[in-house]
Write a protein that binds this DNA or RNA. Structure first.
Lengths: 344, 344
DNA sequence: CTGAAAGCGCTTACAG
DNA sequence: CTGAAAGCGCTTACAG
């Protein structure tokens, strides 16, 4: 079903004017007399005329639509980014199309394709984990502006919005060191991932700058950073002769697994073992003790992504920028790590 | 910037054929010879032709776009529904436009309007809390199919997808009764809300059918169902001469506030006071003890909503359905309530 | 100040 | 089997 909708033509007919005049009157064109404008606008209101943006877009070869591809909308952090995207897109006058890739590379390609077909003006994406083949993304880059956020890849020459992963991680580890911790374990991902690697770099740098030797037993890689893996890896760490006195899980979810397991074994948090997570998810204040973690400002990431994308869309030159924008994070110290005044 | 994109015209020119023939060839029209089809398809692939769906839609007066309006994408339950919507929309060949109303009624109206302008084929919405004036929704209903989900209103004559609120709540209370609880408190919303009211009805019916007197002191209304309010209301309940032996918070978030407060006062959960929430949010397994709650299948709600909407869109008659579809929930018994074998 | 005409990219009834 | 033409709703350069 589709009921009839008022068009310029209908207005023109009823007013005995040409379509052009009606169009101009509604767009407040200086050529049109006030009298005519008034007549047109009145009738338009009366008949509840709404311009068909689809036709407008088609005419102007500009749709004011932006496509967004992300792995999973139900992840709180993604949803938070999405919120920023929606808010800023509205400000800038763009409509947002969402699709989920569910970390499926094939689907990701299809969505990219569909977005193109649908004539979006630009694409915002967080690339799927297993994206090996970036050829189709590269091809598209020539045709349409793309901005990457969160899950990015330096191999794709376009603007990328990320969090200051390395520094955030560095600061988290320094915080632990300042509270007297010396045997700091890290739980990271085994497969290569942009953020996991950079967080690991921060870990290494913090130890190095504080003259703490690296103990390979304290570096744990696992295939995903789920709560379950957090649990398993904690048991592994507790089995060590020389136990850690702090655990940095590069994900809140894993960190919560860590806390739950430590509690089960009656280990005091943070006195015996401190715990730090990453991302300041809602869970981090539900768990007891409350989790010390790194806050990633999702809305700001989304907002920034839209801003850069719109800038590229509206730029007249066909340039491809490839800046990397780092959004600042904040370490939020809660009960799962010791307080310290010596922390600079 | 916008790089050139291959069109039918370009293909026609290069092949020395008419645009019509090229169009038909690509649409696999029976009239066209295989030879021609082959030539066309080959060139199309070579030049990476993708039909402009925007133009197609415009031509056919069908955009295959669906607009979705929801209060807040960052709510896990909403995100879950969104996931279902995205998945099923893809199956049905529709693209999804998202907007957030943030419970702002004025914004909600604007979005409805924009969606119309953008020529969406149908609208899926969860109405904002304070929606008093439904006139604009009613007006729209004549022009375009609308399906409501989650936050609905019986005053709007259209298809509505909800959860079996009353029954779910009834079963939750019965579960408590079967475990021997007799003084069951409920924390609900003070302002009228569709779901709050229906959950309250379920509470009343369960008490009545089990011949338990209603104690007004145990019926607590608050303005929002936040963790903080959960805390405050718990303190209030604990101040009663005749304390409750179970608390049903009609929201997980509030229920978690309840649990945290009970723990603070060293009250044993579930022995002294049992706690039940509603919605099976991710938090419900993070909190300790794990929360007994009602699982609402968000994906299924989203999926169902799309199905009904598409049915209306694709129906030839201009009918307005106003069925209410109830999606079944499941009570998930965890550690915040007693186990029982006598539960039928 | 107003109108006729072309065109955005596509589909489709009508001819041939 | 193929093509010319109209039209979806709009905007805008060109005339007058």
């Amino acid at each position: 079903m589709k009921k009839k909708i008022c068009t310029l033509k209908e207005l023109a007919l009823k007013l005995n004017l040409s379509i052009s005049t009606v169009s101009r009157a509604l767009n407040n064109h200086p050529d049109i007399s006030n009298e005519t404008k008034l007549k047109v606008v009145n009738l338009a209101n009366k008949l509840n005329y709404t311009p068909n943006l689809f036709a407008q877009g088609f005419r102007k070869n500009k749709t004011n639509m932006i496509g967004v591809i992300l792995p999973n909308v139900t992840h709180y952090f993604s949803a938070t980014i999405l919120k920023g995207i929606l808010k800023q897109a509205e400000v800038k006058g763009y409509r947002v199309f969402i699709t989920e890739s569910n970390n499926n590379v094939k689907k990701q390609s299809e969505m990219l394709h569909t977005m193109m077909q649908f004539g979006v003006d630009g694409i915002l994406m967080s690339i799927s984990k297993k994206t090996k083949n970036i050829k189709d993304i590269l091809d598209l880059l020539d045709k349409i502006p793309i901005v990457l956020f969160d899950k990015v890849s330096y191999k794709i020459p376009c603007t990328q919005i990320v969090v200051n992963e390395e520094e955030a991680s560095f600061k988290a580890i320094e915080h632990l060191i300042h509270t007297g911790k010396k045997r700091i374990a890290i739980i990271k991902e085994d497969e290569f991932s942009f953020s996991s690697e950079r967080r690991f770099e921060g870990y290494l740098r913090a130890l190095k700058e504080n003259a703490i030797d690296i103990d390979k037993n304290l570096i744990i890689s696992c295939e995903d950073l789920s709560l379950e893996q957090g649990r398993r890896m904690t048991k592994l760490l507790l089995g060590l002769k020389n136990k850690p006195d702090a655990i940095f899980a590069i994900t809140d979810t894993a960190a919560i697994g860590v806390i739950k397991t430590l509690k089960k074994f009656n280990i005091k948090i943070p006195e015996d073992i401190a715990v730090i997570g990453f991302s300041n998810s809602l869970h981090s204040t539900i768990i007891e003790p409350k989790l010390t973690t790194v806050d990633q400002p999702g809305e700001k990431i989304g907002k920034t992504a839209i801003e850069y994308l719109v800038k590229e869309i509206e730029s007249s030159e066909a340039y491809v920028s490839s800046k990397t924008i780092e959004i600042k994070t904040t370490l939020i110290v809660r009960d799962s790590s010791l307080k310290t005044t010596s922390f600079i």
